[in-house]
Design a protein around this nucleic acid. Structure first.
Lengths: 164, 164
DNA sequence: ATCTTAGTTCAATATTTACTGAATAAACTA
DNA sequence: TAGTTTATTCAGTAAATATTGAACTAAGAT
């Protein structure tokens, strides 16, 4: 665990644990910035550091000092949006959660759905302004075209990432 | 205003107005999906359809049936994140709001900041796992690399859009 | 200068969202 | 089967956020 060689030359265990919890807290805040619940971020943050990488709901409730109910709800959400997955290990009794490999490409694909939604919205707007002064339509044309552009280009970008 | 030639062959004015309000409501919902206040979305939605494209706070409060305070707060927010701008017309008395040209590239740049934040978070995580089993570090390496990739590639993509 | 109209600020309120904890269910253990 | 452990559901509560409306400010009109 030591930063240098073996045991603790510098950071004590509790110091390290404190830094970890600070990290977890900050992931929570970042999730809020993106419109997701803070507790979902805390769970994700802990799963980024935990050893082993898979943790049971009980363990999560324990280290994050959250209720089981909260853990249950938030893991369900995280599974649903594709950031974590539920795994059941061979011999072991129950199941665990871990960060889904390629979680981030999942999230980007998620955003694609939003982009599509905005493009469709722009198209609905254009129907409403059908026959109107072209100047009035420009706003919506830009909105539609921009999102159509991203809809076309992002998958290629993701592909490049996956093939890297 | 008619969909076909001049006056109303089909949709009456109130029908049209209803559809417009439905559209405005849906933009509000879409904004919520992205983590912005619904009222900000309503304002933006109305500014996508309004004739003229610039509207005064009073007009906004009026059509959206919201309080002046709400309009004031939300226009401030929208200006701040770069989606709308305040304009003051030559002869006219006060100022108006309209959708900022290139509002959408602004928003995309905004998201760049989030991506940077996540990359930095991943790097902090890696420092915490320094010297640990490489398998444990993989999660954070993927997170860092993915965001670094986007940080590098998105500006080029936006550039291509602007040069189109 | 006074009146009128329009906009902003901010404290109070309403609404929404996150979180907890008790009750319930499910699954292994003995 | 009864007992133990662990997870889920859900109603209630706490906390955060959005929204209103009254008081204040500023600027044009008379």
């Amino acid at each position: 665990m030591g930063t240098l060689t073996k045991a603790s030359t510098n950071a004590s265990k509790t110091e390290q644990a404190l830094k970890q919890m600070h990290f977890v807290e900050d992931v929570g805040l970042s999730f809020e910035m993106v419109g997701l619940p803070r507790m979902a971020g805390r769970i994700f943050g802990w799963l980024l550091l935990s050893d082993p990488p898979h943790q049971s709901p009980g363990e999560l409730a324990d280290v994050l000092q959250a209720s089981k109910g909260s853990i249950s709800t938030m893991t369900r959400l995280l599974v649903q949006i594709g950031l974590i997955e539920r795994i059941s290990l061979p011999g072991q009794r129950r199941d665990y959660f871990r960060i889904k490999p390629h979680a981030w490409t999942e999230l980007t694909k998620q955003r694609m759905a939003q982009i599509t939604a905005f493009r469709q919205l722009a198209e609905r707007g254009l129907e409403l302004l059908e026959g109107e002064n072209p100047q009035l339509r420009d706003r919506l044309i830009e909105m539609r075209d921009m999102h159509a552009f991203l809809e076309q280009e992002l998958p290629a970008l993701i592909q490049r990432w996956e093939d890297r």
